[in-house]
Amino acid sequence: MKFIWIIPLLIGVFVLFPEIYAETITQNLEGGMDIQITYPEEIVSGREGVISILIKNNGWENKEDISFGFSLSAIPTLIIEPSDRITLDRLTQGGSYGENINLQIPNDASLGVHFLNLKYSHVLVANNKTPQSPFFHDIAIPITIKEGPSVTIHTKMPESIFSNAEFPIETEVLSKDIDITNVRIKIIPPKDIEFRGETLHTFSKIEKNMAVAITSRIITPIDEVNIEYKLPFQIIVTYTDDVGLNKEDSQTVSVVLRPRTFMELTTDGGIWIGSFFIAPYVSLGTIIGIPAGAIISLLIRKKQNSSKKRPKKKKL
């Protein structure tokens, strides 16, 4: 039986992703008015999504009576907070204004892409004295509604491994749409593989768009292999979603165990030369698994054998 031991470092690393899986619409309008709208890539039915609106007056003339109005016909019973209409009395040169709009998607909303229409208007004040006719502009914001929240599992490991060496394996869990609680991450190795250390990791909570990464080390068998074969690992994640339902997601990943070539570099900086391993953390000349005295003896014996084979000079 071949054995692989994995020594978990048990490092639960919380990584904050700067991007929130969102899309952005940028519009450059009359009079130097710039609008940037950031909206979620997807919104789960029955949950909330946030649209962020940022406007800036890059023109040299003031703008008055600025307004944003949302049309609700695309998604019936959609709730917009704080209001489906935003108004500003004035925005001077170089001024800016930002607002977050919460969208409460109804449970019975049809799945797929819907376009939320945003009607924008402003009045340009010519020479900062004379108001002009209102300027109107429509912006279509695509809103994709999906059935349920998604939890993704990403496992990173080498494509192939060889015997008597160490290799990294990292499993990352990310909840894209909601906070999840009572999280259990279980790693199930193949039946003929021995897994040393913790195979189950628990977290009380994983926040939305915050990843948890578990980093471990795979230590391959000492015995050499003559053929390639795959070693499957299964990762199962169970959790409780934001409405109290218990969910499960899983992933199966495989790594190829192959014969070692004549020269192989390991991830920790060591090197295999044939059946000899030179460690990266020892002094020069130290070879793991081979006593230094034995190496010296081999060199001396080789030199002696070479001397014996030299032809003797004939005496005159």
Rank of each mutant, 00 (worst) to 15 (best):
N62F: 07
W272Y: 08
K314Q: 07
N182S: 11
D249W: 10
T24F: 01
L16A: 13
I141R: 08
F195D: 01
S275M: 13
D177Q: 08
V243S: 14
L298M: 14
R184K: 10
F195M: 05
Y120A: 01
F68T: 11
P149Q: 12
D65N: 15
E99W: 13
H154F: 13
P232E: 08
D138V: 09
Q36S: 08
P76R: 06
K308I: 07
F233P: 00
G269C: 04
L174C: 05
I278D: 06
F203T: 01
I300V: 12
F136E: 09
I187Y: 05
E228M: 13
I55K: 07
I53L: 12
V15C: 08
I219N: 10
I273M: 09
I80N: 03
G46I: 02
Q36T: 13
V253W: 00
I287H: 08
T181Q: 14
D65Q: 14
K176M: 10
S216F: 07
S150A: 09
P232H: 05
E170C: 04
I80K: 02
K56T: 14
S306M: 11
S52D: 08
P134E: 04
N246W: 11
S297P: 01
V212E: 05
D89Y: 03
K312A: 15
Q104I: 12
G244N: 04
L54S: 06
E194T: 03
S160F: 09
K119L: 07
Q234Y: 04
P259Y: 03
S52G: 03
T24H: 03
F262N: 06
E224I: 07
I53V: 12
G31P: 02
